[in-house]
Design a protein around this nucleic acid. Structure first.
Lengths: 225, 225
DNA sequence: GATTAAATTAAACGCATGTTTAAAATGTGT
DNA sequence: ACACATTTTAAACATGCGTTTAATTTAATC
């Protein structure tokens, strides 16, 4: 883990010097993101990634060190946008006089949709990545999130307590995890569900619709007396 | 798939003739169940199962045909108890005059707890197996459940519609899947959560407690106007 | 007790994975 | 143009997986 060659700590930031083709690093990152979001981390092999990215197999280990590190790099690219944005939204709620659960969860919407700046379907990808991070046991990812953005999550918990002062710590603990479960699951099974829904109800269904439905649901569950 | 030796279609039903040691088949089934519920299907290897069951590696393929078939056998042992029990409970609700969502979900409690007859912690194991069946993509399991117990699931959907006549088909579709997500997730992350909760709140937490919390939550989410 | 059938066993097969190696190619600074 | 560092490459490595094979042991049948 220590005698690696460079991991491109700086170097060719994003675009190759005299070529219109993105750098090897970016190609790997983009392709990995797409495949991870589609199939999950464990289901996606480095051979699949490097083949589709049209780079050499060994370049993943050269540039990122390991598959774990690649996974973390992919997730971090979204976390680094999402978490500060969420932080800002949550701060805006601090001054709210009559805070509701729905308000807290709706604070997620803008940060989530802002991820579409990273990629056309960034929101969807991020949520699916999160889902896989939880359903597969990617302990290192959980540790990274906790240590890098633990304060934001603490803030979230405090706001929910403020909106639901009658709920005990324990009640809140369980309900928050159920919320997380519904969210994660909706995204991991999301694509399949969206297709079923599309066929069943004969109209377009997109990720925004799903999130709208989801927020109402989890707010209902969380507020239950 | 067709030229297999026997798969023990009948034979030494459950206990060995002149030995106090369970049959190879049962040892495999029990050990597989324990490991599958602990780590998931894909994360558990046949070598791990056969080693802990103290049987030969090849005996899994001899008795069950394949790993997939073993997974299905493990799950079926629970499904065959759970689904008829649920069916009975749901039928009892048909005559209810003012049906509530909570009643429908509480109909799950007895069937779930009855699984403790199969194993001391049968409820927990079953829910975790279900969780893995969904979060890992075990398509064959979904197909089996759908074809074997599809009628019970249809019945469930009908009852929920009766309890919530104001919800559109689409609304119900999404909420039911969120319910499933919260449930599944609670179980897959369940053991870790229970341990955190135990440490955090300084009192015993068991699967029944989690289910009680869960049912209130999902009923709240589903009923939300 | 001989003859089948069923079950168990050790070993190998074929394949896929992440990672490492060492040489070749490319780029950079002087 | 040279020397050096960086990057790319093809190949191999080491490990683990589910499955299959063929021989042996155990059990059952006549």
């Amino acid at each position: 883990m220590s005698n690696l060659k460079s991991h491109a700590s700086d170097a060719p930031s994003s675009v190759r010097a005299s070529s219109n083709k993105p750098s090897t690093q970016k190609r790997i990152l983009d392709t990995a993101e797409r495949l991870f979001a589609k199939e999950g981390f464990e289901q996606t092999s480095l051979r699949q990634i490097t083949q589709e990215a049209d780079v050499n197999l060994a370049s993943v280990n050269y540039h990122f060190g390991s598959k774990k590190a690649l996974i973390q790099a992919v997730v971090a690219r979204y976390m680094d946008v999402f978490m500060p944005a969420l932080d800002e939204e949550l701060r805006a709620l601090d001054d709210e006089s009559a805070l509701t659960t729905l308000q807290v969860f709706e604070a997620f919407k803008l940060p989530l949709f802002s991820l579409n700046g990273i990629h056309k379907r960034g929101t969807e990808r991020f949520l699916r990545l999160l889902g896989f991070a939880y359903s597969e046991t990617q302990g290192h990812l959980r540790r990274y999130t906790q240590s890098a953005f633990g304060n934001v999550l603490q803030h979230l918990l405090a706001l929910l307590h403020r909106a639901n002062p009658e709920l005990s710590d324990e009640e809140m603990f369980w309900r928050l995890h159920f919320v997380l479960g519904a969210t994660v699951f909706a995204q991991v099974s999301g694509q399949a569900l969206i297709e079923i829904a599309r066929a069943e109800f004969n109209h377009e269904v997109n990720i925004k619709t799903v999130i709208e439905h989801l927020i109402v649901f989890i707010a209902g569950g969380l507020e239950r007396p």
